[in-house]
Write a protein that binds this DNA or RNA. Structure first.
Lengths: 131, 131
DNA sequence: ATTATTATGTTATAATATAACGCTATACTC
DNA sequence: GAGTATAGCGTTATATTATAACATAATAAT
């Protein structure tokens, strides 16, 4: 158990444990059915846990897929996420390309917006599917 | 009527006309209730029109809000969109910051992904809400 | 210890989106 | 212009995603 999830509640730990086991993004109702045996019976229990986990940055939501993925080790900030998503196999990785991260972070006054966060989803074909 | 929507079907025109009238992103069911008087009675009629309009680049989906917005005149490609979204008032604008656009377009092999599209959503506080 | 905060369990329902079916219109092509 | 392929239409039903609301329990803060 990491330092970060010491403070998590029982349901939050159950949900996070499950998401971390998954390589791919997972859907909320898939989480629900997979943690059913651990006592979570209804959607709000999962969604509440997700809300908290997202808030503290342990989990990110892939907006274009309504799915959830554990934060990877290289993620430096829950406010800015970058994902590469294979349209063919759904392989999804969190990216922390330093140049890209830096570039976006330096955008201070984009269109009059005082920036507090961003989400970038990159779509394409992964190396496995390219062949 | 623009050149582009000459080829659109009746329902597609109705939906596009409505979205273009709106300044803010609109929800699918809000579109439905607003075009009801024009003969669209059920969700599939709206969603089909949206699918087509998104495909041809006349409309973009704001993934984080499940809402839809007309493409603005500066949009150069339906495959890459950038939005600034005010978390306070939901004011949303499509951005075509040249530097940002160029930077993202030049990302050719991000994490092994052969890039075909991207969606960037920037969150923050707009100039109106800042005060 | 009492108060504030956070989490829990539960039922119900809201909001978003698609499947499936039969039919019609349009465009393509030979 | 008959045949056929493609796209669109209208409709009913249903799937998927997410939240409201309420009563209770656990935890933390002073």
């Amino acid at each position: 158990m990491t330092l970060r999830n010491k403070e998590l509640s029982k349901n939050q730990k159950i949900v996070l444990d499950y998401i971390q086991k998954c390589k791919k993004p997972v859907k909320a109702y898939s989480i629900l059915s997979n943690v059913n045996k651990k006592g979570l019976k209804a959607p709000p229990q999962v969604y509440r846990a997700l809300d908290k986990l997202i808030e503290i940055g342990e989990v990110h939501k892939i907006e274009s897929q309504n799915s959830y993925i554990a934060c990877n080790s290289t993620c430096t900030s829950p406010q800015g996420t970058i994902f590469s998503i294979c349209k063919s196999c759904d392989k999804t990785d969190e990216i922390s390309d330093a140049k890209l991260f830096k570039f976006l972070s330096e955008v201070k006054d984009m269109n009059g917006l005082s920036l507090s966060g961003y989400n970038l989803e990159l779509f394409g074909t992964c190396s496995n599917c390219k062949d």
